[in-house]
């Protein structure tokens, strides 16, 4: 344990001297100092591989923990849906409670054609309808492409909640202001992964820089046929799905 503290101290010292600066950024950026963060060098996106999601709900739990999302069943920054597509074309969807998958009599039966989980979150649209309608400009797109809400200036009119086609926004009952996924902005600006990505046991979620030529996200975008949710609305989501079923909305 002492070793870790010593390491940390010496690392900081070295970094301050500027010796390790180059190496630190070249290696894992986890230790990069926030003041050295340059938003113009990033454009964040997420890839979701449907075929890897096991519906464990760790992401949902981690998100609520990391971002102080109300611990009830009506406020989520991310959630997981179970789709069951039946022989006769019927589609049954339900929200998976974290840890509940498999614990109750599963809906799928002999009539089931295919069934799978779909993680959902704010799509961080490049053309965000929520930003367009906010009367006071309290929600906006940052330079690195994340949609944030200014909780100190949001007047709570809920127009953005109406404008979001994905149901990704909610009115935070504690602050009476609009709230949503920030891609864990406080983490990613320090080189950490969003909490949901960090805890996903199967790498169903892949986070990174869209413009980076070599990264897990770049690989994801190269290796898969991609789709976004509700493309006809021209919101240009930065959350892209691989193996997305046509029934998913």
């Amino acid at each position: 344990m002492e070793r870790r503290r010593f390491l940390k101290k010496s690392l900081t010292l070295l970094a301050e001297a500027g010796v390790l600066g180059g190496i630190a950024t070249a290696a894992k950026t986890a230790r990069a100092e926030p003041k050295g963060y340059d938003p113009s060098k990033h454009r964040y996106g997420m890839g979701i591989q449907i075929d890897k999601c096991i519906g464990c709900g760790k992401c949902v739990e981690a998100c609520k923990e990391e971002n102080n999302v109300p611990r009830d069943v009506a406020h989520f920054r991310t959630w997981v849906e179970r789709y069951v597509i039946e022989q006769d074309g019927g589609v049954v969807v339900e929200r998976v409670d974290p840890g509940s998958s498999g614990s109750h009599e599963p809906i799928p039966n002999e009539n089931t054609v295919r069934t799978f989980f779909v993680p959902k979150l704010c799509n961080q649209c490049d053309n965000p309808p929520c930003v367009q309608v906010c009367p006071v400009g309290a929600t906006f797109k940052t330079e690195d492409g994340v949609i944030l809400v200014d909780a100190d200036r949001c007047i709570g009119c809920r127009y953005c909640i109406q404008a979001c086609p994905y149901g990704a926004r909610y009115l935070n009952p504690l602050t009476d202001t609009a709230d949503k996924c920030t891609f864990c902005y406080h983490r990613i600006t320090k080189g950490l992964l969003p909490a949901c990505v960090e805890v996903c046991p199967t790498q169903a979620r892949i986070f990174g820089d869209i413009d980076s030529p070599a990264s897990p996200l770049a690989r994801f975008r190269r290796m898969n046929k991609l789709h976004v949710l509700k493309p006809s609305l021209n919101t240009e989501p930065k959350v892209q799905y691989a193996d997305l079923d046509g029934e998913v909305r």
Partner: peptide, 11 residues
């Protein structure tokens, strides 16, 4: 079992 219990929707 949270991850490893049989669930038909799992890949």
């Amino acid at each position: 079992t949270r991850c490893h219990m049989y669930d038909p929707s799992r890949p």
